[in-house]
Design a protein around this nucleic acid. Structure first.
Lengths: 415, 415
DNA sequence: CCGGTTATTTCACAACGTCAACCAATACTT
DNA sequence: AAGTATTGGTTGACGTTGTGAAATAACCGG
């Protein structure tokens, strides 16, 4: 009997937990290089083949070979060459922005914002609408109407439409296409990706809204110059996304980036999550309004009013923001100390009033940071126009779709 | 004039900040495969070629080809085959543990611990000594003496000695070999790696001590089954290391993993760093002793005494530990919420008394965690025998050395 | 038009992993 | 004892992919 034991585990060889072993790495190294090349041309402006080679580390010969099919398939276009120095002039390569579009949708409580964006992240049209029914089918209805309106306003051939990207708050498992937990919608394990894809007959990707912002930032924003960065958003809530080593970090179950419920003040106000002194309970819009209501002794319900009074010189209002800045600085210091990223992007609706708390934030950040973590991290404040959330969702779809179709490129095309 | 502008940036093409572009990726994909193969055989016990192929995702043919030079150079050995089922029996492959050794040294305030470890992480000999002079040359003297003693007690041919790994607390830039900040030693930007390498005429790697533990855990411990994990140590201080996607995460400047000074209680005790309510000011050995001193109203200077009294039923002592458990749970919840890792390893000297606080820790962890982050994370408590720190340092050197020499393997050897 | 200079392309080649066929070593069957 | 089934390991031709060196292209300045 013991004889039979020996090979017991042989057929149950499990891959490392959470690891895509080399076997399921569908793309060979070529796909990786094509992707890198595309990203280089996209994010670093028009680029000659030679410069693209320098950036990606490939040889010039390889770049020539890889670029050919990308041009034939219309992903890249050659710009007109422009001389001016001795030697053969470079041929600037550019991404053909009009080649692919995606719809991006930001899902909120009773409202959705949608955009059509091209491959440069430029918004072609945008629309905003309310919807009554927050059930999955209600959302599907809304998305269908939204899509129709968007495509009407900015006609895009179906062929050029890569799909729909959807961003929403909560715990989203983007890889599985499932909304694991959505507090606003009160959803649990809703396979939203399939629901919408079936209805719209288009590719769909879903992702946590802050993650979509991070992906957009990586392709079209400040993140393109850095390999890793953290993104923190402030507004109705507090969000965080991490790009580590060029990849969006999702964690085992896609829940990474939860930042708003870090406890920053153990006897602070009670948070809606039930705990006391969460970051979100101190710095969110409603928290700031509540803080001022409390100290000023009168009811104030909107942040905008606090902002106005702070700018007008009201000390209670200013203090409300300062306290929020300190709390935020403390939490961000914890983040920087833990991960030591080279870049932090501050965004979200709440950042519009950054002048009221950024000094307090920086002071606290400096005070709480260990060694050089704060000094080594560049901090960028990025105002967030309203539709940018939706653009982020579009970017997510664009990346997914383009990378997918690029990897299916062959060069035996010129027939 | 505008004509000249065009190529301005061409020669100053900078690679992405903090990014090793494909160009300086010295190893081709083959090196990567060899490394993966070696790791698979090392961490997953004796393995047949076929099973190794399944784990790494390579074809059986490739494994045969890659394994050959590894055997010829003595990195792997074939075990005696053992039958029992129909079919040709597997030939178990094993890492030849006796092929390579490394010295590992854990540097503390006035004391160093050193070990000799083989490729399986088995400690061959260990030694502990005090040293008076904490200047770099003083440390070099101590390391020289330590090395002599260790090699005397466990004779290892110079050929088989890969080098010396050194672990110490503080902000260490392992890639550069520089101690950026060491509070205990009061060092700033000391190029310790070079200093010791010159003196000992051996390869030397230095790394933050918690990071060395993480690397050891990844090769020889629980981390081998996971692709990502967090390691938290408790003892004289609180440390943290992160392995993300198979790689030790160091951050831009090597300072990542600072965890002890996260503020968990804004009106907690003052920390030695000057802030109030740092995690370390609540859960470190001295903090626990201080907490009990305070509540019991008598001077207690050693944790061991608090442990004894807690076990004897003293409520003050028990409360001191419970409070520490809550604080730790809160901080770890922040960590899990942010990164959502599949595994957390709790270690450090302080973990010996884990029975006194682990329940409080888990309760707080569950309470503070968002969505499924705590449920999705396996928590392992790992007692830390004293020399394990030094073993970690040895592991760091082993990994570095072996991976380096493996990548230089060719298969045209059988001459 | 002639070098001089730099960008791009061509092409033979080398490195590497894989497929499919083949060989090896065992258990089981008759 | 010989044959069959079964599984592991090896071999060699082959396709893919990236590269170096040489060739070619496209501009300058004279």
């Amino acid at each position: 009997m013991p004889k039979m034991v020996r090979r017991a585990g042989s057929d149950a060889l499990t891959r490392r937990a959470g690891h895509e072993s080399a076997a399921d790495r569908s793309g060979s190294s070529r796909d990786h290089h094509i992707g890198a090349l595309f990203e280089a041309v996209l994010t670093r402006g028009p680029l000659s083949r030679r410069d693209a080679a320098r950036i990606t580390g490939l040889s010039a010969a390889s770049v020539t070979k890889l670029v050919r099919p990308m041009i034939e398939h219309g992903y890249l276009v050659e710009n007109t060459r422009e001389a001016g120095v001795p030697g053969r002039p470079q041929i600037p390569l550019q991404v053909d922005a009009a080649r692919h579009y995606a719809i991006g949708i930001k899902l909120m409580d009773g409202e959705i914002v949608g955009v059509v964006a091209d491959l440069h992240g430029e918004v072609q049209s945008s629309h905003r609408m309310r919807y009554p029914d927050t059930s999955p089918t209600g959302v599907a209805d809304a998305i269908e109407a939204m899509t129709a309106t968007l495509l009407e306003r900015s006609p895009v051939e179906r062929e050029r439409l890569l799909g729909i990207g959807i961003g929403l708050g909560g715990h989203i498992n983007g890889a599985a296409g499932v909304v694991v937990e959505s507090p606003f919608m009160d959803w649990h394990n809703v396979p939203l990706q399939d629901v919408i894809a079936q209805r719209m007959q288009l590719p769909v990707v879903i992702e946590n809204d802050v993650n979509t912002l991070a992906l957009a930032e990586q392709w079209f924003g400040a993140g393109s110059a850095f390999n890793s960065f953290a993104l923190v958003t402030i507004g109705a809530g507090v969000g965080c996304a991490l790009v580590l080593d060029g990849k969006l970090w999702r964690g085992v179950s896609g829940a990474a980036g939860e930042f708003g419920h870090m406890i920053v003040d153990s006897n602070g106000p009670v948070c809606h999550c039930g705990k006391r002194g969460c970051l979100e309970a101190v710095v969110s819009d409603s928290a700031i309004a509540a803080a001022m209501s409390h100290s000023a002794g009168r009811k104030i319900s909107k942040v905008s009013q606090v902002v106005a009074e702070a700018h007008a010189g009201d000390e209670d209002a200013q203090r409300a923001f300062t306290q929020a800045g300190v709390a935020l600085g403390r939490a961000i210091a914890a983040l920087l100390n833990l991960l030591n990223p080279p870049l932090l992007i501050l965004s979200g609706e709440g950042i519009a009033a950054s002048d009221l708390f950024i000094d307090a934030l920086h002071a606290e950040l400096k005070h709480d940071s260990f060694s050089s973590t704060a000094a080594d991290c560049r901090v960028i404040v990025r105002p967030l126009p309203d539709e940018v959330w939706a653009r982020g969702a579009a970017a997510t779809m664009l990346r997914h779709g383009v990378m997918h179709s690029l990897s299916r490129l062959t060069d035996q095309v010129s027939a």
